[in-house]
Design a protein around this nucleic acid. Structure first.
Length: 296
DNA sequence: ACCCAGGCATTGG
DNA sequence: CCAATGCATGGG
């Protein structure tokens, strides 16, 4: 295990962290800047800064991996996980072009895009709750206020708030960030929950959904994103996700409306790699509309 | 001034 | 068991 991890401490207090191929740093971290400025995940000048293991960490592209500052060896594992080193992208090279021409095309155009993870269970759950029902811009605005109000500042970024810090403030103080009273109640209930999230890693996907949906404010959609974006499970297909449905409508059904059962069936041809298929479809939907061949 | 946006829980049939 | 409803904000 980890025998291929060559860690080289540089002279400038940085460490080179190797990533499996293929790997495209800019594409992998692109979603942090896609909607707007994220106060917990700062994307500037091609570098990503966020708090990991209690300190601000800056990552930038390097050949075959990333350069990380500060150059602490204990950051290697969390950085690799954050950037999706766990995922096997081999399938994307062998998507049958006849069966899935759309995904085969996207795999080529987005080569090296990896499934970046949300490193902390509480951060993942709160992020999902803020994103429920509202636009991503609205969710980001509320999340930024939440992070600035209750998270610790580390230079240019804020640490995502701890459950303990959130547990200390009351519901209306939480709601002042723009959350509905209902959502403020959910967030606080999760912050004070004594559930051990570490033990979820031993459960299979269905059992994780069952366990998480016991929490107030966590439904199937939020549980599925937890599996995909926190636990890094490979075959998650959130057919209820409006953005995924929109992407499927655009790329796979010639623009005609899809309901959830139809979206679910469209995922079947991507088994057992539906998480990657979903990631690539969502990323493609964010790309600037491809230029059609010039008329004439 | 609308209407929709990467849901969820509650209520009423 | 399914349909209807309230929620809060940002952008078109």
């Amino acid at each position: 295990m980890g025998s291929k991890l060559h860690v080289c401490i540089g002279s400038l207090g940085r460490v080179f962290v190797p990533m499996p191929r293929p790997f495209d740093f800019a594409r992998t971290v692109g979603r942090f800047g896609a909607v707007g400025e994220d106060r917990a995940n700062r994307l500037a000048d091609g570098r990503l800064t966020r708090v990991l293991a209690g300190r601000a960490v800056t990552m930038e592209a390097a050949s075959g991996g990333v350069l990380v500052e500060p150059g602490r060896p204990e950051l290697v594992r969390p950085v690799r996980r954050l950037l999706g080193a766990h995922a096997d992208l081999g399938w994307l090279d062998h998507v049958p072009g006849g069966a899935d021409p759309v995904l085969a095309d996207l795999a080529g155009r987005l080569r090296g895009l990896r499934p970046a993870l949300v490193p902390d269970p509480f951060e993942m759950l709160v992020t999902s709750i803020t994103a429920q029902q509202v636009s991503q811009a609205a969710a980001l605005a509320m999340r930024n206020r939440f992070v600035e109000a209750f998270g610790q500042r580390h230079g240019a970024v804020y640490a995502f708030p701890d459950p303990a810090a959130v547990a200390r403030v009351d519901e209306s103080t939480l709601a002042a960030t723009g959350l509905s009273r209902q959502k403020a109640r959910y967030v606080r209930a999760i912050a004070t929950s004594r559930r051990d999230f570490a033990d979820l890693t031993t459960l299979d996907d269905d059992d994780v959904v069952a366990a998480l949906t016991e929490l107030p404010g966590i439904g199937r959609w939020s549980a599925e994103w937890y599996l995909a974006r926190h636990l890094g499970r490979p075959d998650i297909w959130p057919a209820g996700d409006l953005a995924l449905r929109r992407a499927l409508e655009r790329f796979c059904s010639a623009g005609s409306r899809l309901d959830e059962p139809q979206a679910h069936r469209l995922g079947d041809c991507f088994r057992p790699h539906r998480t990657l298929a979903c990631l690539y479809l969502l990323a493609a939907a964010r790309m600037p509309t491809e230029e059609t061949p010039a008329p004439r």
